[in-house]
Structures are given as structure tokens and as C-alpha cells.
Nucleic acid binder design. Structure first.
Lengths: 210, 210
DNA sequence: AATGAGACAAATCGGGTCGTATTGTTCCAT
DNA sequence: ATGGAACAATACGACCCGATTTGTCTCATT
């Protein structure tokens, strides 16, 4: 019923590292959306703009995304989150100890967000669009996604799956808080700052028993 | 120049615990503002409404608050924050150990916010007003105020003043995050949940050395 | 079978106007 | 020091209007 339920399969076909050699029509639409948004912003981008940019007719775009522009934006956001979670999970899994894992979680997610062209554009020119995505439990879903995606990678160092997920959500909440309110000169993308934060607030509570 | 700089002295004269026996004209205006807002919301409340409710003329209200309605709202918010910080500092100071102090900080602040009639009303009916106060570095100032107000009360258990303030700001950020996004069924107003959070994430990092 | 082109009503949006309510200031009487 | 009144300037809401956009549909094309 909700637009979220209509989310399409955004699985990439082809090798990401070598650029999109093969991509689904849905992906082409999302790429077109990104192009248009970076040029004119979300509000000024029309479905016709997207269709033209994607090299297909408006009718086809509507066939691919029956929900219209809003569903495309939602799908785009979902794709970004999915990518983010995947990369974070990868970085966390590569860590050898709990400190490194948590630090990686903070640094990688913060770095990705700080370097994301689309997100930076929206935060600067159309912050309301970002807020709209986060409202109505959007942040909850985001945090839950991070917990579900990065939690398991944290489990080897914590044993308990529930504790791992809790820690991941907690870290994600921290990143989100600092992202939406950069405030104090602390940047979690800085490995030193992140490490300090982890060793000060996170780590000790987990190490051995409760 | 800014409306903040025009903030008036809101010191209460008389005993708070026995109700306002004696109050300044400014306070009467702020009380009137609260009455009107709870009835009609911020947007629909006019200066004339406030003056009538305060039992004085519109001219007098403008003499007291040259900045108009916006400065009254700002002064009201400031008063609320001041009260909050004072009560939190009091509760923190009453704690005998670090665990109790941090837990009190979370529980008392969360409880006050959760029980605040005005804040609940605004969050439900005029969330944009709250957001407007938090934007433009408003949250930063709020966090700094908590750090400055409650930090010293934390110092006896931490020794270092800078560390105490850092911890207070961190806790405040946690409360703010959970307030703006209640999400996961965790309520920091619940002493058990707060205690769990403190012992898990906060405490261990501070106890002895670095 | 999938796509493009076009048509279509409905909804949305930006701009413009207008009358009213509110604002912020001022003067004067008490 | 306060209230009452007046005042211009402004903000606001309601309304209308034309243009754009949306979402759905049909039909021809490949």
C-alpha cells in the first residue's frame, strides 16, 4: 500500500567497480533522476525531465515507477541507504577487533555521507527534502537498516546478536545526530576523533561480561 | 542586535515551590503567552491576545518586549531551558556517584521534557515552531547550556572540568536525539533503561584513568 | 511484448489581486 | 508608568487565473 512497499528491485547487474556495464531500466531512471536533481533540485525536476534524461518516454517511466516522482525519490534514497549499509558492513567485517569495528562503523558511514554529492546538494539547497525522508519514522527505518545490515558484522566481537545490533543502532544514531547537527567541531569522519569516542563511550561497556 | 541579545531578565522573584507569589511584568506576559499558546497555538496567538490575557495593554507589552511576539516566544523558550538546566543540575548534584549522576541527568531531563505541557502541545500541533527554535544553531546553544549548567555538577565525579562538560553535552545530545526521534521503545525517562544505557555506554570509559 | 507518441481530465503551482487583521510606533491623558 | 487611541506599513488569507505537471489511457510501431 505504501510507496515503500512498491520499492523495486534495485540489484545491480554487472560489475560496480568497473562502472555500470549493464543496468536495469529502473537504474537508468534513477541515474537520470540524480542528474536532474543535481542540476535543478528535486522540486524543479519533472517526470518529463527524468524521462528525457533517461532516454525513454514518460509512459515508460510511469510503467517502471507507477508511484510517480515520489516513488523514484524514495527508491533513490533506498538505494543510497542500501549502498551505505553494504559498504559499512564490509568495513566493519574487515576489522579485527571490536574497537576497530566500531571505529570503522563511525568513520566509514560519516565519510560516505560527507562525500555524497547528492546528499550535500540536498542539505545545502533542499534540506526540506531530506527532512521529509527522515520524518514519519524514516530515521527509525534507517537506523533499523543499519542495525540489521551492520549488526551481524559486529557479532563476532560481541557474541550476542542482540547486543551487536543494539551497538550498531546506537552508533548509527550517533552518526545521524552529528550529521543533522554538526555542532561541536568534532567530525566522526576523522579516525582519531572516532577512535576517541569509541574508546571513551562505547568499548568499555562491551569488552567482557555485563 | 539579534533577538537573543534582547532576552530579558527572567529571574523569578518569590518562592517557586509555593507558586508565583510575586512576579515581574515580564513573567506575567510569558504566562499569558503560555495560556494563549496552549489554547490557540503559537501561529494563531496575537500580541493583543497576549496583552488581554496578561491584563495589560498592548503598548505595555511592546514596552516590555520591544522585539514583539517572536522575542516573547524566544524568551519563553529560554526560560524553559533555564528551568530545565537548573532542575537537572540540582538532580545531578544530589547524586552520590557517577552512575547515579549520569542516570539522573538522563532521567530527569527526559522526564521533564516528557511531562512538559507546552512542549508536548507544540510537538503535536506545531512541530515546526519547535524545529525553528532548534535550527540555526539552536540545538548547539541548548547543548552548550546543558553542558555549562550540568557539567559542573558532574565534575566531582570526574575531576576534570572539560571531561565533565563533555559528558554532559554527550548525554544531552542523547536525550535530544531520543526526544526528536522516539523510535525504539526505549524511554530514557525510565530509570532502568537509563541506568542500563549509562552502565553500558557511558560509565566504563570514565571511571578511572583514560 | 515492449516502447513511443499523443491525447486527456484532474491536480498542482505560481502569480496576481483584494480586503482584513496584525504589527510596531507614536502621542496624549491619566 | 500605564492605558487608550490613532496611524501607516505590513502580513495574511481567500480567491481567481493561466500554465504546467501529473497520472492514465489508447493506439501505432518495432
Amino acid at each position: 500500500m505504501s510507496a515503500v512497499a512498491d520499492a523495486h528491485d534495485l540489484t545491480v547487474r554487472g560489475d560496480l567497480s568497473t562502472g555500470a556495464v549493464e543496468s536495469t531500466p529502473e537504474e537508468r531512471v534513477l541515474e537520470a533522476l540524480q542528474e536532474c536533481v543535481l542540476r535543478w533540485g528535486v522540486q524543479k525536476t519533472t517526470v518529463e525531465d527524468i524521462a528525457r534524461s533517461a532516454g525513454m518516454s514518460r509512459a515508460t517511466v510511469y510503467r517502471l515507477f507507477p508511484g510517480g516522482k515520489s516513488s523514484m525519490v524514495e527508491a533513490g534514497a533506498l538505494a543510497m541507504v542500501t549502498d551505505l549499509v553494504d559498504q559499512v558492513a564490509l568495513a566493519v567485517a574487515a576489522a579485527t577487533d571490536l574497537t576497530g569495528a566500531l571505529t570503522a562503523l563511525l568513520v566509514v558511514s560519516s565519510t560516505i555521507l560527507a562525500d555524497d554529492e547528492m546528499l550535500n546538494f540536498l542539505m545545502e539547497h533542499e534540506q526540506s527534502v531530506v527532512e521529509a525522508q527522515l520524518a514519519l519514522g524514516g530515521l527509525d527505518r534507517l537506523l533499523a537498516a543499519v542495525g540489521a545490515g551492520a549488526g551481524p558484522a559486529l557479532e563476532p566481537h560481541l557474541g550476542d546478536a542482540a547486543r551487536a545490533q543494539e551497538a550498531a543502532v546506537w552508533a548509527a544514531r550517533t552518526v545521524a545526530s552529528h550529521l543533522l547537527d554538526p555542532a561541536d567541531g568534532v567530525s566522526l569522519a576523522d579516525p582519531t576523533a572516532a577512535h576517541h569516542l569509541v574508546t571513551t563511550y562505547f568499548l568499555p561497556g562491551f569488552a567482557p561480561g555485563d
